[in-house]
Amino acid sequence: MSFPDVAYIGSLNSEHYELSMLFLQHGKHVLCEKPFCLNAKQTRSVINFARKNNLFVMEAVWTRFSPAYADLEKDIQNGKLGDVLFIEADFGIVSPNDRSTHIKEFGGGAMLDVGVYVLQLPQFVWKEEPKKVTTVGSLYDSGVDLTETIILEYEGGRRAVLNIHTQLEMWNKATIYGTKGHVTLEQPFHFPHKVIDKDGKIKNYELHSSNLPYNFTNSPGLVYQALEVARCIKAGLIESPRMTHQESINLAVLEDTVRKQLGVHFEADDKEYP
């Protein structure tokens, strides 16, 4: 059995919109790296076109397909943690000077580089949008964000505190606190192979092995995302229930809000998209 062609887009952030539209316009399904696009306007445009043409499109937030996250979701849904009231997550790396993170024209900045991962976590846990967003941080000379701390506030006193940095190696862990205990996603929290459960037990998640070297920690986990794309297309779906179109739009709106609060502005923010 053969499947329709799927284009995987892993280019510079500034090219995600144009390349996604190019492949969709030629009838190809699309899996586009995070951030989906530079802003919410571009993200809505891509999704609307895919929907109108019955094509699959998904933002490649590979975290959502991690076995550890699947278990976490079950624990939350069955009440194992009680009411989740607080989330903390850190993601800090030392970004080399020649990396696109520093370059505004490439859609750089901490938010669109590593910040997507911390923002998606409370979205994944609470499955709703915050009522208030507060951001403090600093910028590179190029005008994109170097670091930020984001506080997301939700109904019922729930809160997430998220730290992002591109010039400092951080814990890169995340902890979800409930009224019955907490769970820690060990480094790298965005695709962990080790989780400390509420009773202190360590859960280990074996990933695929390879004789070839990987560029990033736990890169074998990308296979789960690829399998989900194949599953959805085979089932005739145009979006994944684990990373829906609406979630990508909501994530893009949050990214826009954070950038605006820090004063990070792209030329794409001034344009309109069909």
Rank of each mutant, 00 (worst) to 15 (best):
A89K: 06
D113G: 01
L121Q: 04
D98R: 04
F106L: 14
Q120P: 00
V116T: 10
I93L: 13
D90Q: 11
V114Y: 04
I103W: 08
M111E: 14
I93M: 11
F106I: 00
F106M: 15
G109Q: 01
V94K: 10
I93G: 04
P96N: 02
D113Q: 09
Y117A: 09
V116G: 12
V118I: 13
D90H: 10
Y117F: 12
V114F: 04
N97Y: 13
S100N: 10
S100D: 14
V114Q: 12
D90W: 01
F106H: 15
H102Y: 01
G108V: 08
V118C: 05
S100E: 12
A110F: 06
I93H: 11
D98S: 09
F106S: 15
T101V: 14
G107Q: 07
N97H: 11
H102D: 01
V114D: 10
G107M: 02
G108Y: 05
G115H: 08
P96V: 04
R99M: 13
I103C: 03
T101A: 08
A110R: 01
G92V: 00
I103V: 10
I103D: 09
V114H: 12
T101S: 03
L121P: 04
Q120H: 12
P96S: 09
V118H: 01
Q120T: 14
T101H: 03
M111V: 15
K104H: 09
D113R: 10
I93W: 13
